[in-house]
Amino acid sequence: MTVDWGLLAEKLPDVLAASGVTVAVWAASAVLGVALGAAVAVARRFGPRPVDLALKLFVEVLRGSPFLVQLFLLYFGGPFIGLSLDPIPAGLLALTLYGSAYYSEIVRAGFAAVPAGHVEAAACLGFTRAQTVLRIQVPEMAVLVLPALVNMTVLLLKETAVLSVITVPELTLEISAIGSETYRFVEALTLLALFYWGLVEACGGLGRLAEARLSRFRFAGP
């Protein structure tokens, strides 16, 4: 078994384009997922009880079923209810919804982790509720939930590989195609695995760096 580097070099432009799709879909779904997840968490915490229960169901269903099934349901089932999406938008939407369920739980845990005394102190000092959320709860919580956020975002990167199943032209699809075209499946997949591994490790490293910077004040004082 030898690696035909020349052949792979020839395919480099396609590979680069596909990694662009992977990174773009990942970044977009992470940003949108965090935004939607935060909205869900805030609505559940401050909204009326029926909203909380409805959103709890949304979260539990998305967290309890496989992403692949959700993707199939949206992509193949969507057209039957008038929702015909191309692979990329379908993949992006599914990934955003899936991510938002997990992100919302992380934000919820963050709200719970901020000591009640800090919120009470803000109230005593005359902060409005919005000011308390924005100036006290969100910054404190950001530090507490950062590791979980990084973890989930890395998970989302790995989940983008599943989008190949509905022919989103991302890296796994492209590399598999090259592999079967050239009968160099194992070599191609090995390189693919190394690419994801490197990216995941880099993200983890960046996350730890950010954590170290942000958590300066956590250990200050008694």
């Binding site: 790995k158 989940e159 499946f185 997949l189 693919l192 695995a193 490790e201």
Partner: peptide, 15 residues
Amino acid sequence: RGVPLLVQLLLIYNL
């Protein structure tokens, strides 16, 4: 932990 499960499965299935 760093490689998508789908890629691992494809690799093992072909390896």
